[in-house]
Amino acid sequence: MAAGGDHGSPDSYRSPLASRYASPEMCFVFSDRYKFRTWRQLWLWLAEAEQTLGLPITDEQIQEMKSNLENIDFKMAAEEEKRLRHDVMAHVHTFGHCCPKAAGIIHLGATSCYVGDNTDLIILRNALDLLLPKLARVISRLADFAKERASLPTLGFTHFQPAQLTTVGKRCCLWIQDLCMDLQNLKRVRDDLRFRGVKGTTGTQASFLQLFEGDDHKVEQLDKMVTEKAGFKRAFIITGQTYTRKVDIEVLSVLASLGASVHKICTDIRLLANLKEMEEPFEKQQIGSSAMPYKRNPMRSERCCSLARHLMTLVMDPLQTASVQWFERTLDDSANRRICLAEAFLTADTILNTLQNISEGLVVYPKVIERRIRQELPFMATENIIMAMVKAGGSRQDCHEKIRVLSQQAASVVKQEGGDNDLIERIQVDAYFSPIHSQLDHLLDPSSFTGRASQQVQRFLEEEVYPLLKPYESVMKVKAELCL
């Protein structure tokens, strides 16, 4: 049975990233139509530049190519590739079939990587351009969430054990800070992308030097003109047959890092959902379990974690691919890159769409948070109580021993009897502590235990987050809708 299948058929496997999760716009960027249309555009740009620099290419040939950029006979191309065992030459023939007058000058002087690699770089750039505003929107939604809850005390956790208090907004800023680093890295790697350009079979530009009869300047002009037509500021000066596969490492490393950030955020949300302090959106008709109707599973956060793990592992592909590119190139890269580049971007696209949807509907339960604080705060307040007693004339050592005994009794009630923490009640009825009984409410005010959390939130948002989001103001209103 021949390899390949009808990918629109229910009898043929289709990647869930495309069929179930990723956005239509990201799927289109990695589609065959987008790819092969870009090949034709690159052939047109090459012909236009070659004509401008004096090669015998007519206006009629150029116009014929322009008129057929979208006229792609995919069936013919597939048949040609089956016959020739070469995808680029299959599309040269297919393009030439609908451009008979231009057929002889299509791909003039070029090698397969002229269309293959340059198209990949265009796709990487455009895919990054799709991700950047999506990530900015996630940051914006979380920034709104953090600002609104900047002063809401909550129990902090280290080692997932109760620690000092923080605020809900401050905790959210930990998430935002990681995503801001990801946004900066995505922008950097996007701006650092260079075009492969017009380089020939081993990167020496020998074929173009021959076409222009040894004119170095025209060869350099050709490279520059096509690079500018493709919208790049610069091209690699040095290439082998391909652009260095280190570029793929750079791009997928940034995406993998984004995956790590999203995994951490969504894990926190899942843990908070278990504590009943916070939940992701839950639709009115949504079913959490087929057997347990009360369940409210954090399905979206779980999906993000599941896909983020996949995204983090994909960076190993370009690392290994770059390491086995012998001399000017081997074909070890080809099949692998067809999979890992598309999957990385479709996965990143999915987790950003999902995280935006989550961040637009996060639900906080202040009463649950308050109750958990009441359970733990008495123990945390013991040092403040000791200091207040010393100020009232008591002995630190005597007070410490009193607190120690009462704390152990209260802990026994919590752990052995399943009761509430009654340390404060014990202190309130103990005559030894009568000098500070009137101060206990103040000493137990949760806001006095959150330090500068709310001020940190305000400063972080104003100095770091809002300036970073400013270039994306025009796209901030787009909502994230999930079908599944």
Rank of each mutant, 00 (worst) to 15 (best):
L461V: 14
V262G: 09
V414H: 03
I373E: 01
D144W: 14
R245A: 00
L444G: 04
Q458T: 14
H93Q: 15
V315T: 10
L444R: 02
N274C: 13
Y114D: 06
A150S: 12
Q241K: 03
P133D: 10
V115W: 00
H97G: 10
Q221A: 14
G156T: 02
E64G: 10
I351D: 03
H442P: 08
K229M: 08
R372T: 06
K224N: 09
W39S: 09
E280D: 08
S454Q: 12
Y466G: 15
D144N: 14
V138G: 08
K276V: 05
Q286C: 00
T450Q: 05
V88L: 10
R196D: 00
K66E: 10
F36G: 14
E60K: 12
F74N: 13
H97D: 14
V262I: 10
L53G: 05
V247D: 07
M380W: 01
K170Y: 02
C399N: 07
E279A: 09
V138C: 09
V363G: 05
R245P: 01
R234P: 04
S290W: 02
T354I: 15
T167G: 04
R40P: 03
L275D: 09
S448T: 12
G361P: 07
G116T: 15
E64L: 11
Q177L: 13
H159D: 00
R137W: 06
E279W: 01
Y432P: 05
L272A: 11
L341M: 12
S112I: 01
A308C: 15
P56A: 11
G394N: 10
I403Q: 05
N357G: 12
A77L: 15
K246V: 03
I351R: 01
F232I: 05
V247A: 14
R452G: 08
L406H: 15
G116M: 06
S301N: 04
D317K: 03
A273V: 07
A78W: 09
I287G: 01
V189A: 12
K224Y: 14
A291R: 02
R371L: 01
S407N: 04
T119N: 04
Y365H: 12
L275K: 03
R296G: 02
T350M: 11
F327Y: 12
V390C: 11
G203E: 01
A136E: 10
G197P: 01
H310K: 12
L346C: 09
G116S: 14
S323W: 00
H400E: 02
V368L: 04
A335S: 15
W43A: 00
G393R: 07
T382G: 06
L468T: 14
L211W: 06
T354Q: 14
Q439W: 06
H91G: 11
Q375M: 10
A18Y: 11
E473D: 15
T313C: 11
